[in-house]
Amino acid sequence: MYRLTLSILTFFLLLTRPALAAGPFDGGWQLNAESSAIRFISIKKGSIAESSRFAAFSGSISESGEAKIHIALDSVDTSIDLRNVRMRFLFFETFTYPEAAVTAQISPALIADLAAVQRKQIDLPVTLSLHGVEAGLTIPVAVTLLNENLVAVATVQPVILKLEDFNLNAGREKLEEAAGVTITPVGLVSMDLMFERNGAAGSAVPAGTVTAGAATALEASGDFTREACTGRFEILSQGRSVNFAPSTARLDANSRGFLNSLSGIIRRCPGMVVEVGGHTDSQGKADWNMALSEKRAAAVNQYLQQKGIPADRLVAVGYGETTPLVPNDTVQNRAKNRRIEFKVLN
């Protein structure tokens, strides 16, 4: 009888032991965005550190250990409205690269003993996709088992990313011009993530993508003030993201994403008339440059109208070579002078 009772008890314990003991990814896991944070630190003027975050992201770990985290770059939150806009349009160029992604294949052997030790540090190989570039990294992370349905994963130290590795140096230079500061060409990224087992009873927050306070960062709806509109058009003019085939007024296909984002901003500046100004460098004859700038401004005007912006809210003007930003003495400067600018008229 004693042996029978012991056998029944042992069988019962096997049935009811934590799922993590049987397999660390049983059922799969979802990132709880409300209880997580993804931040980065930038350094300006050589010694001033500024901390920012992303307000919208999602993630999961499959039963096979495939981990994915998707970050909406439009949700970058520096706590200052127009600085957010600079980060979106000048640095991340979210109209072309709206998302960053981190993926990893986690070997169950790495955390097979997590139920016993509760917390451990592992070196996790990941792939980071950012600004059109994919790169492999190895990130030390601390994994903490809070209970059988809740796991915390955090970077042990900030991950150092070189901007040149992700083609972000041009964006950094635009930020420097716009803000009038020097910016160190690295970013320090940290993650503090909470994962819940799928189907766990009592999960307070369903799998989602938005963290607390994201509405402000994302600007999901609502009209802008005149000041906010003016600031946005100034920043968008600094992006130099509207390009044309050489010596023509034919819009480059890569300009469309930017202009689509611009049309959304114009809609949220009700009643305001926006000037679309075309500018050239000083190469060639002045009258030819004037005509080309007028045609390019008209091409942008036409595209915005096709996106639903009323014609009476747009004024196309060509300035030719008459208003350079910088002297036309280098290839780089001439490229800066060939531009489309936007400003509020009334």
Rank of each mutant, 00 (worst) to 15 (best):
Ala67Gly: 03
Phe54Asp: 04
Ile61Phe: 06
Arg39Trp: 05
Glu50Trp: 09
Ala37Asp: 13
Glu34Ala: 00
Ile69Ala: 11
Ala37Pro: 13
Phe57Cys: 09
Ile71Asp: 05
Ser47Glu: 14
Ala67Arg: 09
Ile71Glu: 03
Ser42Met: 08
Lys68Asp: 04
Glu63Gln: 12
Ile48Tyr: 14
Ile43Gln: 08
Phe57Ile: 10
Glu63His: 03
Ala37His: 12
Ile69Gly: 10
Leu73Arg: 09
Lys68Met: 08
Ser51Phe: 03
Lys68Arg: 14
Arg53Ala: 06
Ala49Phe: 09
Phe40Arg: 04
Ala37Met: 02
Ile41Ala: 06
Ile43Pro: 08
Ala56Trp: 07
Ile48Pro: 07
Ser60Trp: 12
Glu50Ser: 14
Ser42Phe: 08
Ala55Arg: 00
Ala37Gly: 01
Arg39Lys: 15
Ser36Leu: 10
Ile71Trp: 01
Ser64Gln: 08
Ser47Cys: 08
Ser36Ile: 06
Glu63Ala: 00
Ser47Lys: 13
Arg53Lys: 15
Gly46Asn: 00
Ala72Gly: 01
Ser51Leu: 06
Lys68Leu: 12
Gly65Asp: 02
Ala56Thr: 15
Ser36Pro: 07
Ser36Val: 11
Ser51Tyr: 02
Ser64Asn: 12
Phe40His: 11
Ser47Arg: 14
Phe40Ser: 03
Glu66Val: 01
Ile38Met: 03
Ile38Leu: 08
His70Leu: 02
Ala56Ile: 00
Glu34His: 06
Phe54Thr: 05
Ala33Leu: 05
Lys45Glu: 10
Ala37Trp: 07
Arg53Leu: 08
Ala33Asn: 10
Lys44Val: 04
Glu63Thr: 11
Ile69Arg: 00
Ser35Leu: 13
Leu73Ile: 05
Gly65Cys: 02
Ser42Val: 01
Phe57Leu: 10
Ser64Glu: 14
Gly65Val: 10
Gly65His: 11
Ile71Met: 04
Ala55Asn: 12
Ile61Val: 15
Gly46Tyr: 05
Phe57Gln: 09
Gly46Cys: 13
Glu66His: 11
Phe40Met: 03
Ser60Cys: 08
Ile71Ser: 07
Gly59Pro: 06
Ser64Val: 05
Ile38Asn: 11
Ser58Val: 04
Ala37Asn: 02
Phe54Leu: 02
Leu73Ala: 03
